[in-house]
Write a protein that binds this DNA or RNA. Structure first.
Length: 633
RNA sequence: GGGCCCGUAGCUCAGCCUGGAUAGAGUACCGGCCUUCUAAGCCGGGGGUCCGGGGUUCGAAUCCCCGCGGGCCCGCCA
C-alpha cells in the first residue's frame, strides 16, 4: 500500500465500498459496525437496493454477498449477510498492523488531514466585561473557544483568537463611580485580586447604591459620557482600571490553558471611527432610517422588514435620540471589521505574551504594530452564549445588508452555567420552593468565580496527591494538583451538549472519579508507567490471536481521523470529549485484563506497541481538549 | 402574543445533525477484585411508557406534524 494513504479504518471503509461497487451497487452505505459481532464494517446497501427493486432485503443481501469477490481484498477476510445487513470481517493480523503502522508513521500529527493549510479562521471568545472576575459561566466560553482554536490549529488552519473587551459601557461607569464617589481605594485589600475586589465589592455595592440614590445615578450617567468623550478624570481612571482588571482576567484564562492573539477594545471602535464608516454605508444602502415620529422618534433604526423572523419584533435602534450608539451598533461595526468591511484597520501595542511565547496585541489609538488578519478568512466564529442569539442574528443580517460575506459569520452559541439550589443557598441566596436552578448574576454578586472553583478542585486534588505520594515535596504536589483541577473543570465544561445548561454542583464536581478529566489523566499516567518500565523494543506485528480488549482499543484509535474530518463541518467538540472518555475506558479494561510487562516476549512486544500507540493518540486528544498531561499521578 | 432550545435509568448526561440489529455511560445503591504494569481503576447486580399522540419508512430515541411540561430571548441596558 502507498505510504501516504490512510491505512486503518478509512482504508477498510474504502476497500469495503470498492468491493460493493464492483457488484454494481450504487450506494455502498458502509459504516463502522456498532457491535463487533457484526464484523468491523457494515453495509445497509441491501435495504436501499431492496426498496428500489421491491424485493426482500434478505434475499438482496444474500445475492450481493455471493457476488463479492474477495480475491484481491487486503483487509477484508469475509462478508456475511444477516437480516439484510452485510457484515465485513477482517484479517485482524493485517488490520491491527495497518492501524498501528499508520499511528506510528503519523506520530503527533495522527488524525489531522491538514485540510486547513493556507486557510484562516478568526475565533472570538472570552469577551468578559472588564469590571469583574470570570465566573464559571465565562469559563465555559473560554474553554469552548480555546478548544475550537486548538482543533482548528491541529487541522492546519491559521487561527487568530480575538477577545473583545467592552471598556466603555455603563458597567464600567458603575465601577468608576465606586472609586470616585463611594470612597473605595484603588488598592485592593491585602491578598485580594484586583478583578475580584472590583467585581465582588466595588461594582456590586455601587450598583446597589445607585439604584436607591438618584444623585449617584445622575453621576453615573455623567461618567458614562466622560468615558466615551475620550478625556477627563473618569476616562483616565477607567483606562487604568480596565487594564488592571484585564490582566487579572487573563491570568485566569491562562490558568485554564487559553491563549489569545488580539485584544480588541471597544473604545478603539469609537476612536477609529469604524461605526461612522459602517453607518454611512448602511445609510447609502438604505438599510437604516431615521424615525421622525412614534415611540422611537429621533432614533436611527436598522430596517429588519426583509428578515423573515426578526421583522416580527420591530426594527432595531442603532443610534439613540441623544446621538449615542447602542451596543448592537458597535457590534455591527466590529463584525464588519472582522469581515474586512471597513477601510480602516486597527493598530496595536504589545500587551503581553502567551505561555507558548507568542505575543498578545491590544488595539491602540497610536499603536506601533500592525497585524492584518482580515485577508483570506474562511470563517469568523463568535463564541457567545445563547441569550445573544437574537442580537447576533441582527448583526449577521446587518452584514448581509452591507453586502458582506455574512455566511462566514457564525454565532457559536452555548447555554449558560447556572447554580444548583444547594450552591445558591451556600452563597446566601434563598431560591423559590419550586426553583431548580439559580442563574448567576454579576450585578448581584451571585456567581462562582472560575478561580475559586479551580482552587476548590485543586485543594481536593491536593489531598489525593499527598495521600498517594507522601514522599513528594509541596511544589510537586501543588503542580500536579493544579493540572488536575484544570482538567476537571475544562472537561466538565466541554463534554456537555451546547444546548443544555450546566447546573453547577460543586460537590459532584469535586468527585474526581468516573467520567471526569482526572480519569483521563490517570489513564494516561498508567500507560506512561508501563512504557517507563519496559525496554524500548516493540512490534506492530501481532503474535497469535489478538485479544478482544486489544481489538476494541485499536478500533477506537483508528476512528480518530474520521472524527476530526467531521469537525470543520459540524464544529462539535463534545464528540471528541466523548471519544476521549471511551478511549480511556477501553485502555483501562485492556490494562486490567492484558498484562504487558509480564507477557511472553512476542506478545509483550505487540502489546507494548498498542500501549505506545495509545499514548500517542491519547496525548493528541488530551491536548486538543486542553486537558494537561500527567506522566505520574 | 411571537421566536429559539430542552425533555432518555433515582440523579447528571451520551446516542439525534447523517434513521439500522437486544437504547448506553457516569453517579447513587448492593456485591466482588490490590504478594503480578498506579484501586482517581476493573468486574458483576438491580434500575427504562426514550414526555404523550399521530405520520413517513422494510426499520424511528433519531425525520415530519400536533399536544404537554420546563428554560431562554423579544429595552432609546450592555
Amino acid at each position: 500500500m502507498e505510504a501516504d494513504s490512510p491505512m486503518g479504518l478509512r482504508r477498510l471503509l474504502s476497500e469495503a465500498e470498492r468491493l460493493l461497487a464492483r457488484t454494481g451497487v450504487a450506494k455502498p452505505a458502509v459504516q463502522p459496525s456498532r457491535d463487533p459481532r457484526f464484523g468491523e464494517v457494515t453495509s445497509t446497501a441491501a435495504f436501499l437496493v431492496a426498496r428500489e427493486l421491491k424485493r426482500d432485503p434478505r434475499e438482496v443481501a444474500e445475492d450481493l454477498a455471493s457476488r463479492i469477490d474477495l480475491s484481491e481484498a487486503e483487509l477484508v477476510e469475509s462478508v456475511e449477510h444477516v437480516n439484510g445487513y452485510l457484515n465485513f470481517k477482517v484479517d485482524w493480523t493485517r488490520y491491527a498492523k495497518a492501524i498501528l503502522d499508520e499511528i506510528f508513521s503519523e506520530g503527533a500529527g495522527y488524525g489531522s488531514s491538514g485540510i486547513g493549510e493556507g486557510r484562516r479562521i478568526i475565533i472570538e471568545h472570552t469577551s468578559v466585561n472588564p469590571n469583574k472576575p470570570l465566573h464559571v459561566g465565562h469559563a465555559r466560553n473560554v474553554c469552548l473557544g480555546d478548544t475550537l482554536s486548538r482543533i482548528f490549529r491541529f487541522l492546519g488552519y491559521e487561527v487568530v483568537v480575538l477577545n473583545y473587551v467592552d471598556d466603555s459601557g455603563a458597567q464600567m461607569a458603575d465601577l468608576i463611580l465606586g472609586f470616585t464617589k463611594l470612597g473605595y481605594p484603588l488598592e485592593p485589600p491585602p491578598n485580594a485580586r484586583f478583578d475580584e475586589y472590583c467585581g465582588d465589592v466595588v461594582y456590586v455595592e455601587s450598583v446597589r447604591r445607585a439604584e436607591s440614590d438618584p444623585s449617584l445615578a445622575e453621576e453615573r450617567r455623567r461618567i458614562v459620557r466622560e468615558i466615551e468623550s475620550g478625556s477627563g478624570e473618569a476616562f483616565r481612571l477607567n483606562k487604568l482600571v480596565v487594564e488592571k482588571v484585564l490582566r487579572d482576567q487573563l491570568e485566569t484564562c491562562r490558568r485554564l490553558g487559553a491563549r489569545y492573539d488580539i485584544l480588541n477594545l471597544e473604545s478603539a471602535i469609537l476612536e477609529y471611527g469604524l461605526w461612522e464608516e459602517v453607518f454611512e454605508k448602511l445609510r447609502r444602502r438604505r438599510a437604516v432610517y431615521y424615525a421622525a415620529e412614534g415611540s422611537k422618534a429621533g432614533c436611527w433604526l436598522l430596517d429588519l422588514s426583509g428578515h423573515p423572523i426578526l421583522s416580527r419584533e420591530g426594527d432595531e435602534v442603532l443610534v439613540r435620540s441623544d446621538g449615542t450608539t447602542t451596543y448592537t451598533a458597535r457590534d455591527i461595526a466590529y463584525a464588519a471589521w472582522k469581515l474586512g468591511g471597513t477601510s480602516k484597520d486597527f493598530e496595536y501595542d504589545l500587551f503581553g505574551e502567551n505561555p507558548d511565547g507568542s505575543p498578545i496585541y491590544i488595539t491602540s489609538k497610536d499603536g506601533e504594530l500592525r497585524k492584518p488578519i482580515r485577508d483570506n478568512v474562511e470563517r469568523v466564529i463568535n463564541v457567545i452564549d445563547v441569550r445573544q442569539k437574537r442580537p447576533q442574528e441582527i448583526v449577521r443580517y446587518a452584514l448581509k445588508l452591507l453586502g458582506l460575506e455574512f455566511e462566514k459569520y457564525i454565532h457559536y452559541g452555548y447555554e449558560v452555567v447556572a447554580l444548583s439550589r444547594k450552591d445558591a443557598k451556600r452563597m446566601g441566596y434563598e431560591p423559590e420552593p419550586d426553583q431548580k436552578i439559580v442563574h448567576m448574576s454579576g450585578r448581584r454578586g451571585l456567581y462562582v468565580k472560575a478561580d475559586r472553583m479551580l482552587d476548590m478542585l485543586k485543594a481536593r486534588a491536593g489531598e489525593e496527591v499527598r495521600r498517594r505520594h507522601p514522599e513528594w515535596g509541596a511544589d510537586r504536589v501543588e503542580e500536579n494538583a493544579e493540572k488536575i483541577a484544570v482538567a476537571a473543570l475544562r472537561y466538565s465544561l466541554i463534554k456537555q451538549d451546547l444546548d443544555k445548561p450546566i447546573i453547577l454542583d460543586t460537590d459532584e464536581m469535586l468527585k474526581l472519579e468516573g467520567d471526569t478529566g482526572p480519569y483521563l489523566q490517570y489513564t494516561y499516567a498508567r500507560a506512561c508507567r508501563i512504557l517507563e518500565k519496559a525496554d524500548s523494543s516493540y512490534s506492530t506485528q501481532p503474535y497469535g490471536e489478538i485479544g478482544e480488549d486489544e481489538k476494541r482499543l485499536l478500533r477506537r484509535m483508528s476512528y480518530l481521523p474520521i472524527l476530526l474530518d467531521e469537525f470543520p463541518s459540524n464544529l462539535m467538540i463534545k464528540p471528541l470529549a466523548n471519544y476521549a472518555y471511551k478511549l480511556a475506558s477501553e485502555f483501562n479494561v485492556f490494562y486490567e485484563h492484558a498484562p504487558v510487562l509480564q507477557a511472553e516476549e512476542n506478545v509483550r512486544k505487540f502489546r507494548l506497541a498498542v500501549v505506545k500507540a495509545f499514548t500517542t493518540v491519547f496525548s493528541i486528544v488530551l491536548n486538543l481538549l486542553g486537558v494537561p498531561l500527567l506522566e505520574v499521578m
